[in-house]
Structures are given as C-alpha cells and as structure tokens.
Design a protein around this nucleic acid. Structure first.
Lengths: 384, 384
DNA sequence: ACTCGCGGCGACAACGTTGTCAAGCAGTCG
DNA sequence: CGACTGCTTGACAACGTTGTCGCCGCGAGT
C-alpha cells in the first residue's frame, strides 16, 4: 500500500545513515559487522531492492547490457541471446534485447536507444550497416562487441565462414562430386560471401571449373526453393550435390527435394538444424554453436569493461562438422565441439587467434552443460 | 570527447530553459512553434537522446517492459518475445528479457530485479511458482500479465489446452484408433495436465477405456524416448497412435520412431515444429502460434496500463490443427490460424472469451505478416 | 485606464542513489 | 599527556529529468 521502500526507509529502520546502507548494499569494506547485520536485517524485512534508475543516473552507466540482433524469431540468435543472458545474470546484469530486422535505420534507432537512452553497460550487436558513426561519441564509455558479422573497428566474434565452408565442400568433393550447387547466395550477408569464397577455394584446389549456373541467388528476400531445386537438377549437366549456405536455405531445399522425391542427392548445410539427423538421407551440417558464440561475445564484452584493450580484433569461434552420412546416423554432438574444433579451418582463412578462442571456449564449455546441446535445441522444454 | 549532451546543453544551444526543452521532447502543447523549431534543431545538431534513467527516476516507472520466460533457447518462447518486442517498439518501450529456467527462486530473483530494480512499466511472465506473493507490493503500479500458463489473480494469456488436445485426439479416434498413447506426461506443467484432461474427455466420449499403460511419464527431467517408444509398441495390446503432448516429446518420439523404423504409426503433436511436414509420414500438429500469444499478451499489458480493469481473467488464444495426413503433404499454413481457429475448442473447456480473443487477434494478425509464418519459424534469416 | 485571462516560458525542488569530504572515536606511540 | 593513526560513520552535493508554481506580456472586457 505504502510506496516502495527506499534506501531512506532502510536507514531509518536500521538506525543508520543512508550512506551506510549504500555501503552495505555495495559490499564495501568499511562497515562494522554488527552494523552490517542490522542493515541487512532491515533490508530483508522491508524487502528493499536498490533502484537501478537512480544508480545509473548517478554512475552514468546502468545495470543492463544491450543486445541488438536480426530477430529473436531466428533460433540461432535466440540461442545466442540466451547464452548472453545466462552469463550476464552471473554478473548481476540484465539484458535489453532489440531487433534490427536487418534494417539499418532501425538498427540505428535501437542502438542509440540502448547506448544513449538506457545507458547500457555494454552492447553486443549483429551489425547491419557497414558503418556506425553515431556510436562514436559513446565508445569511450560503452564497450561494443560485434557478433556473427565482423566490422572493422569493433571486437568481432565470428566463425570462420570461409574455412568451414571449404571443409564442407571438400567433403563433397572427396565423395566424388563435381557438380556441387551453391544454394542461396544472398549478397546482403558478408558471411555468405565468405562461404562462397570457401566454396570457390575448394573447387580451384580440386581443379573443378566453377559454373555460375550452379549458384542460386536470392535477389532481395525470397527465393523459390522448389523452382531453383528443379532448375539445378534439370541442367544439361545437373547438380549432384548441394552446399546449402545457411540454415534457411537448407530447410527450404530439403523440403523442396522431399517434395519432388529427389532424395538421391548429397547435401551439406552451413548451420545445424533440428531433424537434420532424422531426415533421409541425413544432412551433414556445419554447426556454428550459438552458445559458444554468445559466450565468447559476452566474455569479450566483460573483458572490455575491465580494460579497454588496444586494437579491436576478430575472435574466431570454432565450428564442428557434424557428419551424417548416407543412412548412418551419428550422435548429435559426436564428441562435441571440444573434440572437433575444426582444425582444418586453420588451413584456409585469415587470422587464427589462439589466445582468443581458447579463453573464450572455457566459460563457453561450462554454459553448454546448462543448455541443450546444439542439435537438441528445438527439443528443450517446449511444453508451452 | 566531451561528455554526452544533456538537456542543459540543448537548452543553452537553443537559448531557452531546460523546462522548455523537456516540453518539446515530451510533445507538450504549450510551446510556441518557432521555439519548438529552434529546440528541435538544437536536439538534432547535438544528437541529444533523453536519459531514460533520469526519466524513470523522476516518474517512478521506466521505459522498458520486463519479460520472464523459461528459456530463450526454446523457440516457442523466443518467438513469443519477438512478437512482444516488435509491438513494444511501437510504443517506444524496450524489452528486458530474463529467463527463469523453471526455477522458482530464479523466477523470484528475476521478477524482483525487473519490477523493483528496473522499475519496468509492466511485466509479462510465464509463471513457474504457483504463487508470487512478493509481487503484491508492486501490483498497484506495475501491470502484470501471465502467459502460456495461467495463474489466478493475473490476467493470463493461454491457449485452450484441453479443447485443442481433445480436438487432436478426436481426430485419431475418427481414424479408427483405439490404442492411443499419451506421450510424455510431465506433472510439472499444468498445461500438460490440461491436455491430458482433453485426452481423457475424448476417450470417455468414444467409449474407449483408459489404459494407464498407454501413458508415458517424465518423472523429473529426462525421458528415454527410444525406450518408451519400444515399450508402447511392445505392449500385449500395443499403441497404434500417439498423441505427443508437447513439441519436445514430439521431436523425441519422431526421432525414436525413425530410428526403429516404425513409421507405420499415427501421430499428432501439440505444438508445431519445423519439418513436421517433411517427415514421412507427416505429423499433424496443433499449432499454438507464439506470435499470436505474444501479441495478445502485450496488448493486454498495454490495456492494463490505461485502466487497470476489474477482475483479472483468462484470455484464450485460438489454436489451429494443421492436418498432415498420411503421405499427403499439406501446405504448412493451409489457410492459417485465421481460417481454422479451432471452433471445436469452445465445446470443451472453461470460459470462451469473445471480447478477448477478438481484439487480441487483430493486432496479432498484423504482426504475423511481418514475421515468418509459424511453420517457417526455423526458416527465417538463419544465415548467421 | 485597470483588470482579468491566458498562452508561453522559467526557476526550483524533487526523484533515489553514490562520491566527496570530514567528523567522531578509540587505540598507539613518542 | 598530547598528537597521530586507522577505522567507522554521516552530511551534503550531484546525476538529468519532470512537476509545481509563478512570472511575464498581450489582448479583451469593463
């Protein structure tokens, strides 16, 4: 009925000054144990909870971190945010989520709202625009980490797209395929562009001539999966295998292939998806574990709060190739990311960052145990 | 380099008092158009963004709403939060997410942090504990809406579990099945208990005797799907059809059935999941659209901010039964929730709330267009 | 001419917390 | 015995914003 208890009420109840209460709440040293006990008792009794708004008004930086991702409806990003939230809770931080919908204007609006409006203690974002000059005034006080897509000037947590894609395509080549379709090239995403590079790397290495007809392209937004699948299989020299450049494409393609009863083709997907191991034939996947990535990102952000280190750099999170050969069903994790941190990826792309991926992987591993395994993602507690 | 611009800087730059700037920012009436223009210009030039912390300190209630759900790694809840976030953005509100991990203590911690600490403008939560007495002091100022699981004393947005389950089981009965397994009874969830009621309703209505052996039970946490599937199919009088009480069970069961090559059984699942229409045979699903539910919840919350209406009540969101008969593959939405809002559900359970589900469905429908269709959930932009 | 009303605007306090500074108080050392 | 030290505590300002109140000037009514 009365208004919510404030620090003053606690102080009065404990017979001390508000400053002493503040000291107790913030676990400062110089408080007599007996006084501390009295204060804690009063806090308990009144159900006092410190006011975050006043705190961040005073300190200039608040008790939440901001996360801006494409969409929470995307399970990859949802899982990523989940990992972030779990870790943030340990630090006593809350998570403000905002989605960009891949719209640079909305991205700007959301970022400014978080950084300037809510004065978040840090930001993790999946960048959309190529530059974010409006963040400049805040970067001295607010650490920022890019995730999933790297940006110059920001610490970026990404996977080795090019290397992992190469690993996958190599696998198809090793199986004897020479007509490998690159399914769904979407120019909007730099990640996909890098995966295409990996694809081309392997073709060149194997002496296979690149055929542009084997590339499906999303122009802006939608692709007719069924039509594209028919086209690729109907070429004079048809595709015999598919490299699906992202999970969305993989799902669309799988559905299309099932619909036209062409399950005689090989396929590897970038991005794991549930049921990849139930389908016939099983679809091998490059698993980019969102929990690993999310953990690495927040770990990086927390480190940045301590000491805003020198040059921003790219932090590469290992991927795993989940083998699901014809008919044979392998366990979802088959050893897990710990045993299969894509060593071959080092063979292809840019900076391998040993000092980076190792410490990042340690806390990530602990989080993995509290979360569903990647391929069991959809399976978690969806009793809703 | 300088500190971030405050209202004072804007006032100085525009040659007015800070109060006038405040008036302009808050779109109050009594400001001369010319003055307003000057102020807006200054705001623009300085890149001023109002400080949320100060605002909520003054007003006692902040610019964010809190959402507490089981886990963001669960796609159902992730999509639900996504719907909430989209709508909240329209109102100029941010979203603070927190997960309960189904732990009542953690739920309490998270709720208090949001309500008392962050002074959110409202809370939407999937309740875990059966009671939340600690929320009482805040309920006069902070509206609260329960979602997915209903709680007395709170406006609750749920689906008609009992009715929808009955609809599904009836379908199996109509196909001639008499040995229908209830797969995964989990006592922790009241939703599942209600679904079991629907199951029993139909059996009784059809004159089929209930056989406890046909019920699989999760004791606490894990269930051996493969073992249970074998048991049910190995009974003296074996199961010929399955009602999967939730998406997790459906996925586990599907995987198990595929693994032992028993795709000759019928199955209907509560909760849609991607690939339900690709599997052979197709799995019919009761689709509880998280976007619909999320929209209804935030709509309810916003309404509660206006006028804290009288009695809290239950708001029932319609479900759709997605038919995916044997072999025949139906389009994922096949008309969508608009055309199949489970009319039969009215035949079974508690309060049908016409005034409720109708206005809730209107804004929900608009959001559905900006989001992927339910069954395409996994398919959205997962290019990460 | 004097007053009244009103549109436009500003001075000031207050929100709940923490940082700064200094005071009180005992024990210790010279 | 006085000064000094270290520990504990409190008074007060400040963070950026909005609510309250009142001032100013102008046109209309008396």
């Amino acid at each position: 009925m009365n208004r919510r208890p404030g620090i003053k009420d606690v102080a009065a109840s404990a017979g001390v000054s508000i400053k002493t209460v503040s000291r107790v709440v913030n676990a400062e040293e110089a408080v007599h144990p007996e006084t501390r006990a009295r204060v804690l008792h009063a806090i308990q009794q009144l159900g006092y909870v410190p006011n975050t708004a006043a705190r961040s008004l005073k300190s200039g930086t608040g008790g939440a971190i901001g996360v801006v991702i494409d969409s929470l409806a995307d399970p990859f990003f949802a899982a990523l945010v989940s990992a972030i939230e779990t870790r943030a809770l340990n630090e006593g931080l809350s998570v403000l989520v905002a989605s960009s919908s891949l719209d640079p204007d909305r991205e700007r609006e959301q970022l400014l709202s978080l950084v300037a409006g809510h004065q978040v203690a840090g930001v993790i974002f999946a960048p959309v625009a190529s530059e974010h000059p409006y963040l400049a005034p805040y970067r001295t006080t607010t650490p920022v980490v890019a995730v999933d897509r790297s940006r110059a000037g920001y610490d970026s947590v990404v996977v080795d797209d090019r290397g992992a894609a190469a690993l996958a395509v190599q696998q198809l080549v090793d199986l004897g395929h020479e007509r490998i379709a690159f399914f769904d090239r979407d120019e909007r995403f730099s990640t996909i562009h890098r995966r295409l590079s990996g694809y081309l790397d392997v073709l060149q290495g194997a002496g296979i001539e690149f055929d542009p007809e084997l590339v499906s392209s999303t122009v802006d937004g939608d692709l007719d999966y069924l039509g594209e699948a028919r086209r690729l299989l109907g070429l004079a020299n048809p595709a015999t295998a598919f490299f699906a450049s992202n999970a969305k494409a993989a799902i669309g393609l799988t559905t299309a292939l099932h619909r036209i009863h062409r399950q005689d083709t090989a396929m590897i997907a970038f991005g794991d998806f549930s049921f990849a191991d139930v389908l016939r034939p099983g679809v091998s996947c490059i698993d980019q574990d969102p929990f690993l990535i999310g953990n690495a990102a927040i770990e990086r952000l927390l480190a940045l709060r301590e000491e805003s280190s020198g040059e921003p750099r790219e932090w590469i999170v290992p991927t795993a190739l989940l083998q699901r050969g014809s008919g044979e069903i392998t366990g979802p994790l088959a050893g897990g990311s710990a045993t299969a941190p894509a060593p071959a990826s080092a063979a292809s792309t840019s900076a391998a960052v040993p000092a980076a991926s190792t410490p990042a992987a340690v806390p990530a591993a602990s989080a993995a145990s509290t979360h569903p395994a990647p391929s069991a993602r959809l399976a978690e507690g969806d009793v809703a």
